[in-house]
């Protein structure tokens, strides 16, 4: 029983670390203006954990950088659903809707 619990914890940790790595990789591509590659990495991170606001916020930033305004707005809204006090997502969404 104890062994099973330990295995599950280890698995959870691995998943967390993969998710974080994907986000970091996405950020790396974004900073190098490789927007399409950044999108792929952030989407993979969201597939692993759809409850992490970081993946959605970063996707929003990349879409906005590509002038894909509607998609960016959707991503910021999703970020705020998961983390209502996300200051950056709020600022970007306000700017896009014209507040």
């Amino acid at each position: 029983m104890k062994e099973k619990k330990e295995k599950k914890e280890k698995l959870d940790e691995d998943v967390d670390s993969i998710e974080q790595e994907l986000i970091e990789l996405g950020k790396f591509y974004f900073l190098n203006q490789k927007y399409d590659q950044a999108i792929k990495e952030f989407q993979k991170a969201i597939e692993i954990n759809s409850k992490n606001p970081q993946g959605f916020y970063n996707l929003g930033i990349v879409y906005e950088a590509k002038n894909m305004i509607e998609k960016a707005s959707r991503m910021y809204r999703r970020t705020l659903e998961l983390k209502p006090d996300h200051v950056f997502a709020k600022e970007h969404l306000n700017k896009l809707v014209g507040i």
Binding site: K27, F30, I61, A65, F88
Partner: peptide, 13 residues
């Protein structure tokens, strides 16, 4: 739009 990382570690431009 120039990509940046803010002081708090968030991506932005």
């Amino acid at each position: 739009k120039q990509p940046i990382v803010t002081k708090s570690g968030e991506t932005d431009f």
